[in-house]
């Protein structure tokens, strides 16, 4: 099975989760843990960088839905960035662009957070 891993870096109040590899039902718990950790630490401004993500399945999409409500209630947000066309099309088909802000690059997404302030 293809590998999946994540790395998190902090940029001021914004946390950036970098996804790498294949995000599906088997690997989704890894990303879930990342969200749980960030929420525990009261870090609600999250950018997810898809630059190195090769594939996302419906179970992978579900992870974003699981925590968005809680994060938005805490005046935070999940912003998505750096998707390749294939991954973007999957998000687009389901109407995710109507639910999430999607940016071309991670820095644009981070900037959006800081502008708001």
């Amino acid at each position: 099975m293809a590998e999946f891993n994540t790395s998190i870096k902090e940029q001021g109040a914004v946390s950036i989760i970098n996804l790498k590899g294949y995000l599906d039902a088997h690997t989704a718990p890894i990303l879930e843990n990342n969200f749980v950790d960030l929420i525990d630490k009261n870090r609600f401004q999250i950018v997810v960088d898809f630059k190195e993500l090769a594939y996302i399945s419906s179970a992978g999409l579900g992870v974003f839905m699981a925590y968005i409500e809680k994060i938005r209630e805490s005046n935070g947000d999940i912003k998505l960035a750096g998707m390749n066309t294939k991954v973007y099309n999957i998000f687009d088909l389901l109407g995710f662009p109507l639910l999430y802000e999607i940016f071309n690059s991670e820095s644009e997404a981070v900037q959006k957070f800081t502008e708001k302030k």
């Binding site: 419906s58 179970a59 999409l61 579900g62 992870v63 839905m65 699981a66 409500e69 088909l93 389901l94």
Partner: peptide
């Protein structure tokens, strides 16, 4: 929206 787990959805 009411019955499904937040993680689940249907296209």
């Amino acid at each position: 929206q009411q019955t499904l787990n937040k993680k689940n959805f249907v296209s």
